[in-house]
Design a protein around this nucleic acid. Structure first.
Lengths: 156, 156
DNA sequence: TTCTAAATGTTAGAATTCGTACTAATATAT
DNA sequence: ATATATTAGTACGAATTCTAACATTTAGAA
């Protein structure tokens, strides 16, 4: 009999396949070429604008160094702007340009539609279960991160 | 009021952060250098040995072209072997070598321990909820994949 | 203060992944 | 039976991500 922790560890390994299944065949019908990191970044900025760059790099789960590359590309395409933060001159907040705003609206609509199509044949009960499951993961993420932060503070 | 499908689409974007939170600081205490794709592949082969390469590439969610690179590295390190499949000579089954078996045991133990540490402060109820949530995602993955396969067959 | 440690973002080069095209083998249709 | 389409895996160049090292700025301690 495996422990529940072991069960969870094993189930974790299936998550990339879940994400892949839901994003399969996802292609943006827009004129500007954007990869997944770029479009996801735009969506995060639209949802919560003006955060420093490291914040977004954590959300799309790439290193801050890699995120510099993503931000450069989005800036060159005229979709975002780096804004120096007065209170902390190390930080650079990101905001959408006018062009970025308009494009991101389309991206979000297409993204939501794509996912909706993928789960269109699920029953209402299955949809509710799926939504609840994802909410559990979000809560768990917060819980783990809070704890991690606390530990790090105590160590210093 | 957003539709449940839209809620799900938005929640989806948090999954990479969830995975990241649970794998943070994960380092293998073994003498051979392995990246995440390599160690995950070994664990999948140990769990279900002898599948053709494409099967594993789907599980770790990289393209089959990229998986060739991963398999090459594991083979050069003496951890796996490509075995030609008689019934279908296009396919190459993967199996662990003796060395690969031994190493993968350690990897699995360390992986499970790492996850266990990350969720150690969750209550029993939280653990149950998390396990159930992950199981829902696995079921949903299967459901979506079945449906997709059916659609593809009908289109041809 | 003043020294030290930590955080933010960038750079450079290596490692990994991707997209496309290709060969070989199999499945399907006519 | 033959032609056509699909599948498994690989090769190669481009794109993306990573790690390590760095400058700058801020936070904390002595």
């Amino acid at each position: 009999m495996k422990s529940i922790e072991t069960n969870i560890a094993e189930l974790m390994s299936m998550l990339p396949m879940f994400i892949d299944a839901l994003l399969e065949d996802y292609e943006l019908g827009i004129d500007i070429k954007l990869n997944h990191s770029e479009s996801t970044t735009l969506m995060f900025i639209k949802k919560h604008s003006g955060d420093p760059m490291t914040e977004y790099s954590k959300k799309i789960a790439i290193s801050k160094a890699s995120f510099t590359y993503v931000a450069d590309k989005l800036e060159k395409k005229g979709l975002i702007q780096r804004i120096p933060v007065n209170e902390d001159r190390r930080k650079h907040a990101l905001i959408l340009t006018e062009k970025g705003e308009m494009l991101t609206k389309k991206i979000i609509a297409e993204h939501n539609q794509h996912i909706a199509n993928k789960i269109a044949h699920l029953s209402q009960d299955q949809l509710k279960d799926l939504k609840n499951a994802l909410e559990i993961l979000v809560k768990t993420t917060d819980f783990i991160k809070e704890r991690t932060d606390t530990i790090e503070r105590n160590e210093s």
